[in-house]
């Protein structure tokens, strides 16, 4: 069963002069349940836009994007928000932790929009990412590696069906990058989530069995990922 099914996806932005600037043209893309796939490509190739569309943050101009069987373009905004809260975990390059909240509160907030906040489970998750003693620290009080681990714990807090990771190691040094990557992959395995990770780091890409170049995906001719299931 596929967690993500995309067909005939088109998305363009409006250039400052008002003309549409096409960004995405994805004839076909699937990601199977539990599958882990790395996507790479040059900057401006539409990677982040693609992830935002998959997360339901942006709507496609045409085509169908199904997340866990539901076509996001037919859903009302609040239903898309709900779908994202429950089924999609997002990890950003810049972590995007909420400043002013503790690590624990960051995880709890994500939970509260999804399957419900549980303090014990949030603490358990922070312990799982090695931050049991940092639960009450604010992002500024944490190292970058620790911040990304909080972000990873937050992404899996609702036991999502898929984790979208946008350059999750881009701001980390080599050691932290390797640790963060391993952590994401392990946690996805533990909660049964599929992983779609965007990166241009060759070390990261080397860790994946399957990788996909953005220009293979974002073209006129159909590109099938996930063994065509």
């Amino acid at each position: 069963m596929n967690v993500i099914e995309v067909s005939e996806l088109r998305k363009s932005y409006r250039a400052p002069d008002g003309t549409p600037a096409p960004v995405l043209n994805v004839p076909r893309f699937n990601l199977a349940h539990g599958e882990q796939l790395a996507l790479h490509g040059g900057s401006g190739s539409g990677k982040t836009t693609f992830l935002n569309v998959l997360a339901g943050i942006l709507l496609p101009d045409s085509g169908s994007v199904r997340i866990c069987g539901r076509d996001i373009s037919t859903l009302r905004e609040s239903a898309r928000d709900r779908l994202r809260a429950i089924h999609v975990g997002y990890v950003f390059q810049t972590f995007n932790l909420l400043q002013g909240f503790t690590a624990l509160e960051n995880v709890l907030l994500a939970m509260s929009f999804g399957r419900g906040a549980s303090r014990p489970r949030a603490r358990e998750l922070l312990a799982r990412v090695g931050l049991a003693d940092r639960a009450d620290y604010r992002p500024r009080q944490l190292s970058v590696g620790q911040q990304q681990r909080v972000a990873i714990a937050r992404a899996v807090a609702n036991r999502p069906s898929v984790i979208l990771a946008d350059e999750p190691t881009g701001n980390l040094d080599r050691a932290n990058a390797a640790a963060a990557l391993a952590l994401i992959r392990e946690l996805c395995g533990e909660c049964g989530a599929a992983l779609l990770l965007v990166s241009h780091d060759s070390d990261v890409l080397a860790a994946f069995d399957r990788t996909l170049r953005m220009d293979e995906l974002n073209r006129m001719e159909p590109v099938v990922a996930g063994a065509g299931r």
């Binding site: 928000d81 994202r84 929009f113």
Partner: peptide, 16 residues
């Protein structure tokens, strides 16, 4: 604004 965008990305509805 960034905080609100993050919240929305986490699944918070506009109403929240």
């Amino acid at each position: 604004r960034r905080d609100y965008a993050i919240l929305r990305a986490l699944g918070a509805r506009r109403g929240v």
